[in-house]
């Protein structure tokens, strides 16, 4: 004997179908499929980027660049002169680094990077930007009150240390070169690179910890 159970049937119905994506996921799927059909972008290009920036490209690249700038004065000079060119020595050129400027921390200066307009960031050397970098709060406050923002990141600066805030644009992005920590004399490049953090290369960390 059969009976009708609407609730049970509904549950079965939902189970039998593929998981329904969220509203924004459907919007993206619509846009993506139309753009591919019109030949505006290739599926492979999108897939490659997603794989690269979800898994592979990260701040280790920037850390290698910084470590070399500590061990090789001629490279440091090239980096400060034209960072976009200098990173080509590592093969790191690519997304949004055509115009990259490296800025160095010194005992009396500290550099902090922001994009007040949106979220411009040197993806090819630092990977995907952290969530806070894209937040409205950081974009507004890093310029208005950098010292306070840095305090929240546990960076306490003496009043005599000058802070430079660099506002990234679509045309020009920044990489902070932190100071080489004491006690690392004679270290090889890879070991030095392991000390360099993403936040230090944005400027929301100053002193690197020797581990």
């Amino acid at each position: 004997m059969s009976s009708y159970d609407g609730k049970k049937l509904g549950a079965l119905h939902r189970h039998l179908h593929a998981h329904m994506p969220s509203d924004p996921a459907l919007r993206v799927k619509a846009l993506e499929s139309l753009a591919i059909e019109k030949g505006l972008v290739a599926q492979e290009t999108i897939d490659t980027w997603v794989e690269m920036y979800s898994e592979k490209v990260g701040p280790k690249r920037g850390a290698q660049v910084v470590a070399r700038s500590w061990t090789d004065p001629a490279f440091r000079e090239r980096l400060l002169d034209d960072a976009g060119q200098a990173i080509k020595e590592f093969g790191f050129e690519g997304h949004a680094t055509e115009h990259l400027r490296a800025v160095e921390n010194t005992p009396d200066t500290h550099n902090l990077v922001v994009c007040t307009l949106c979220s411009c960031y040197p993806f090819a050397v630092l990977g995907m930007s952290p969530i806070w970098y894209r937040s409205a709060a950081y974009r507004a406050r890093a310029v208005k009150d950098p010292r306070k923002v840095l305090e929240e990141f546990d960076v306490a600066l003496n009043d005599d240390i000058k802070i430079h805030v660099w506002d990234s644009t679509a045309e020009l992005r920044y990489l902070v070169i932190p100071e080489r920590p004491d006690g690392t004399e004679g270290w090889e490049e890879d070991r030095l690179a392991s000390l360099v953090t993403r936040n230090a290369m944005i400027g929301t960390q100053r002193d690197l910890k020797v581990t």
Partner: peptide, 10 residues
Amino acid sequence: EPWQATILAM
């Protein structure tokens, strides 16, 4: 979410 990555990739 994967759709977030797709936006930036596109």
